[in-house]
Design a protein around this nucleic acid. Structure first.
Lengths: 217, 217
DNA sequence: ATTTGCAGATGAAAATTTTGATAGTAGAAG
DNA sequence: CTTCTACTATCAAAATTTTCATCTGCAAAT
């Protein structure tokens, strides 16, 4: 999943890049609108573009048109007081906009939303005989659906996304239940048990003694 | 809550600053170790310091000693391959370390943890006749405890932290239940109902028609 | 080979959360 | 001011999650 960042303020561009990299996206930064347009002629394999509205070379709205010609969805980055451009931007066909300074988490959420809408996300992952659909929150085994409760699904999702990696109960609690979960670490065991019961041996959820669990393929 | 950032790589420093600002902390950046030590003589009202290990002027470990003399807790920012400094850093008395590149959310969590440990957080907030203790997850009304279930507490916490601001049901769901909650918006109403029943009229949770709820004081 | 002691598995109870159905109310429209 | 409508409140049932107590199995020690 490759994301284009067009932003002339270096620190902001870098900040976005770092956060996107941490979230496992590939990134490319350009500082200038015209330069970006030129570069796209060579390489337009982007899944999404984040465009600053105010850009040297060619402004965000011009660049938006270029993006649309390549069928790349766009999220605008706009300054707080620049309300006019919100409306104009969305009318021009941007998928979304976000006001600077923004919270990183919010940006990530919006990016996911747009990618989903454009079906550029891997909504389905296959492991062993299982097919996990993150969008539908469903799991199929050899084609037929297995009904999982919310927590069970979330737990499986984390295991699948970290396939072949052993994860401690504490880490699972943080990842699935959230950082502020107060309960027992035993809780994880029970849900693992449920997954095993419902998915059978073929799910291949291994216990890692003294540590936690791992899903192997 | 004021946090000192000592980091010579400008983009990283700016990134951290932006994220901390978004999370409502005051910040101050220095790029140089010696300069920081000098500046502290004038102004040492910091609640926490984030120190890069590799610094011009005076390295992170030297600076750590200075921080300790001012009783400022320290989190080290260290490069991935710099494992040695982890051990050394913690031995030298740093509260925690985090490896670059890190996820912003993780940094924020660690900062909160350290501030809590040093009792520099407002663990207790008073609104009307209520006293909300975020650390203990408890609520007292006129001194005596009211037992709230986890979801009820979380919901109250969000309302309190956004006192006098009307919040839509959708936003409450995102803030309390998480971005990926699948259920009905009605759920909020039920929990609001519980809070009102348990806390009585004095909790002052107002319904904002067509919108959501607001806790007034 | 048997015992002992953990760490994990599991079934079932308890607690919590969510949903669904119904009743109530405030605000809009006439 | 009254009626109508749409939104909100609430109760109870259903579903889910968490905890508790007990059981099992592996591994180290004798």
């Amino acid at each position: 999943m490759k994301i284009l960042i067009v932003e002339d303020e270096e620190p902001i561009a870098k900040m976005i890049q770092m956060n996107l990299m941490a979230a496992n996206y590939d990134t490319q930064i350009y500082n200038d609108g015209l330069e970006t347009a030129e570069a796209l002629k060579e390489d337009n394999q982007y899944d999404l573009a984040l465009l600053d509205v105010m850009l040297p070379g060619m402004d965000g709205f011009e660049l938006l048109k270029v993006m649309k010609s390549y069928d790349i969805p766009v999220i605008f980055l706009t300054a707080r007081d620049d309300l006019l451009s919100k409306v104009q931007g969305l009318k021009g066909g941007a998928e979304d906009y976000i006001v600077k300074p923004f919270e990183v988490l919010e940006l990530l959420v919006r990016i996911e939303k747009v990618l989903e809408r454009f079906n550029r996300m891997d909504n389905v992952v296959k492991v062993l005989n299982m097919e996990i659909n993150f969008k539908e929150h469903t799991v199929r085994q050899d084609g037929k659906e297995v009904a999982l409760k919310p927590m069970e699904f979330n737990l499986l999702a984390v295991l699948v996304k970290n396939k072949n990696i052993a994860i401690s109960r504490e880490k699972l609690l943080k990842m699935v239940w959230g950082v502020d979960f107060l309960g027992e670490t035993r809780t994880v065991d029970v849900h693992i048990g449920q997954l095993r019961k419902k998915l059978g041996l073929s799910s291949n959820i291994k216990t890692v003694s003294k540590l936690g669990y791992r899903l192997e393929d």
